[in-house]
Write a protein that binds this DNA or RNA. Structure first.
Length: 305
DNA sequence: AACCAGGCTGCGC
DNA sequence: GCGCAGCATGGT
């Protein structure tokens, strides 16, 4: 009898599981997955039932094991779809690497970060909350805030003495009060923004479906920005991570600016024309470029500059 | 103890 | 439309 709880996912060209894991396993404490010995553990929701799976690298494939939850063809397809979107497996990076090679300041990236994919956030509500949490605070603190919110009102399952969390749904978050969020060390305005976003979802003024059905980047950005607390940075971050708009640049991002300075693309923050001119050489790959520049922040290459 | 952190709103021009 | 103050809150 075959073991249906275990199956393979094909790896595309120009893909490195190690590089992708490296990004997920940076020095931050993310509560929404776990990595151990190069194996990634993740719990997701499929049709309102929780599934826990592990993802690791087999010979020339990725190997998925369903550790908890129903095992069926449908579940396998859902997990495959999730992984494909999470790691952006359908994208052909060739044109991007060609662009990188045209710039002597960046060509090293095609080797150093070879096979790194833009790691996404599939859940729009999670992406919005996460980017609001991350506004204007350091990432360590941001991950701590996220963990507190998830621990307070997200679902969790236990497997072999480990807990796996799922990001809460807007219907649950909206039951919180500003002072409850403040108790988690959210600032008052941040708490308000989180509730604004939850409310937009609950009232169906915003959903991934609504957003996907808008045909232009500008319309999607406009819809996101209609929510108080969502500015250019947040909207573009979400469009990059969830909608995978390839030309989305989270303008003003401090990490991005740092990386642009370190690569001598600008001399200091605020040289917006120079930034636009620079990105104009990467049409259709702007978001990937941003992601690779973020990657460079943790790289020795960055610190040597 | 200042200065910074994956910004945003609201105001004045 | 653009620039800038004021804003919260914890880390280093």
């Amino acid at each position: 009898m075959m073991d249906h709880s275990c199956f393979l996912v094909e790896k595309p060209l120009l893909f490195s599981f190690r590089e992708c894991l490296w990004f997920l396993d940076r020095d931050y404490d993310d509560c929404l997955f776990r990595i151990e010995n190069n194996v990634l553990f993740k719990a997701i929701l499929v049709d309102s039932s929780v599934v826990l799976f592990s993802l690791s690298e087999a010979e020339d494939h990725l190997e998925v094991k369903i550790l908890k939850g129903e095992v069926s063809e449908k579940i396998r397809l859902s997990i495959t779809k999730y992984i494909t979107e999470w790691f952006d497996l359908k994208k052909n990076l060739q044109p991007f690497y060609y662009f990188l090679q045209q710039d002597p300041r960046l060509s090293y990236m095609t080797k150093e970060y070879h096979g790194l994919r833009l790691i996404g956030i599939e859940d729009l509500f999670e992406a919005l909350c996460w980017s609001i949490i991350g506004q204007q605070i350091n990432l360590n603190f941001a991950y701590r805030l996220k963990r507190r919110l998830v621990t307070l009102c997200g679902t969790e399952i236990t497997f072999e003495n480990q807990q796996y969390h799922l990001f809460p749904k807007p219907e649950r978050v909206i039951t919180l009060t500003i002072s409850e969020l403040q108790a988690l060390q959210f600032s008052k305005s941040k708490a308000r923004y989180i509730l604004e976003v939850s409310n937009a979802f609950v009232e169906n003024k915003l959903s991934k479906e609504l957003l996907v059905n808008l045909s232009t980047f500008e319309d999607r950005q406009k819809l996101l920005r209609s929510i108080k607390g969502v500015g250019v940075w947040t909207a573009n971050y979400v469009l990059m991570k969830t909608l995978r708009d390839s030309n989305s640049i989270p303008f003003g991002d401090v990490g991005l600016l740092k990386a642009l300075v370190s690569h001598k693309i600008i001399e200091q923050r605020g040289e917006n024309e120079k930034i636009l001119a620079f990105f104009s050489n990467f049409k259709g790959w702007e978001s990937y470029l941003v992601f690779y520049l973020w990657r460079s922040l943790s790289s020795p290459v960055f610190h040597n500059k």
